[in-house]
Design a protein around this nucleic acid. Structure first.
Lengths: 189, 189
DNA sequence: CCGCTCATGTAACAGGTTACATGATTTA
DNA sequence: TAAATCATGTAACCTGTTACATGAGCGG
């Protein structure tokens, strides 16, 4: 099971409801995992049944009631075991790269449109991750924070997310430049 | 369907058998997709049934016979349509990042072991992609090749793969350094 | 003769996505 | 009063992984 451990890791920084967790999976957690809300509700139910998390009902007056979950000792042990086991390498799996692979056989304009859409999206994530990093380290420098901060896990994963999206953006822009130049060279013939 | 288009894109550079395709998916194609051989055989069958690829039996004397597949006009049209449709953004989904997220709650030594294993793996991929790029551009410079080469799609995706693995390697090494330094700071107390 | 490469699959299962469903409250 | 947010799920379907199965030739 895969999502299982991502959820446990996400719950380490405070008790969350399914709804809040879903939000997390769209923001911070998106650096290392992604999941639909439906998947999360199902996984939370399973984790609680297995005793890896404990839920408690929170009665709200103005909002619907919710259930907050926290990682149990058994959950921590599970994470520990998971960390010790060797991870299989992860692969890129991206529709956009498939399209670029076919570059010389498909419409260039359509491809450029896709690339610039992605570049914009990547830049937005770069901005977001930058903000998240700043809010985590507060007034400290990055070096200072990484040396003495007491919760560096999320910071490190956010750094990877940032670099990944910068890589996406730069690569998209480079590919666009290359395709445009070839277009012009072709026109001159 | 997702694998579908990855297979079509991979077959653009020459007719391949299921077996050869599986090899491709472990090397070059690994820049943008990954798949088990079983999945590929199943997908090839489906694609042929839908008329997007055409297979022909090749009788071999010393080896078992094989079926080579090539993309049909309908297959090219499908790729064209796929390229024009907007791609949903891709996400990182990586066990290793989940482990790092939990960094402050799990055994540091185990984590460092995972990180250095991954760094080694990433470096191997960097070397491999470097070789692939050189063999694609032959004696030309990268700029020259990208301007005038007649098949730049695979080159561009390989560049992304290269940058991605460099990013992985650098990030792993950085994380290891940070964790080691904190370990020592902790010991001094 | 043992293990690797070539060559192709089936079957069972685990994991992930999409569509559908409900209902209250707050904000524009 | 319409749309967004809070809050939680079920069901059907599609995709991907793991285990199993077969068989010939080649290299050490």
């Amino acid at each position: 099971m895969a999502l299982r451990h991502a959820v446990l890791a996400a719950l380490l920084d405070g008790d969350l409801s399914g709804y809040q967790l879903a939000k997390e999976f769209d923001l911070g957690v998106a650096n290392f995992w992604h999941a639909q809300p439906q998947q999360l509700y199902a996984e939370l139910t399973r984790l609680e049944k297995n005793g890896l998390i404990a839920g408690r009902e929170v009665i709200q007056e103005t909002r619907p009631n919710k259930r907050l979950f926290q990682v149990t000792d058994a959950g921590l042990a599970e994470l520990e075991e998971f960390t010790a086991a060797s991870a299989k390498p992860s692969f890129i799996r991206d529709d956009l790269l498939v399209k670029v692979q076919a570059a010389d056989h498909v419409d260039t304009e359509a491809l450029i449109a896709q690339l610039s859409e992605r570049a914009t999206f990547a830049q937005a994530k770069v901005d977001l991750f930058g903000k998240l990093l700043r809010s985590m380290r507060q007034d400290r420098t990055e070096e200072e924070f990484l040396r003495h901060g007491d919760r560096i896990g999320p910071y490190l994963t956010c750094l990877r997310g940032l670099a990944f999206e910068q890589g996406n953006r730069d690569w998209c822009e480079h590919a666009i430049t290359v395709l445009r130049e070839r277009q012009q060279a072709h026109v001159r013939h």
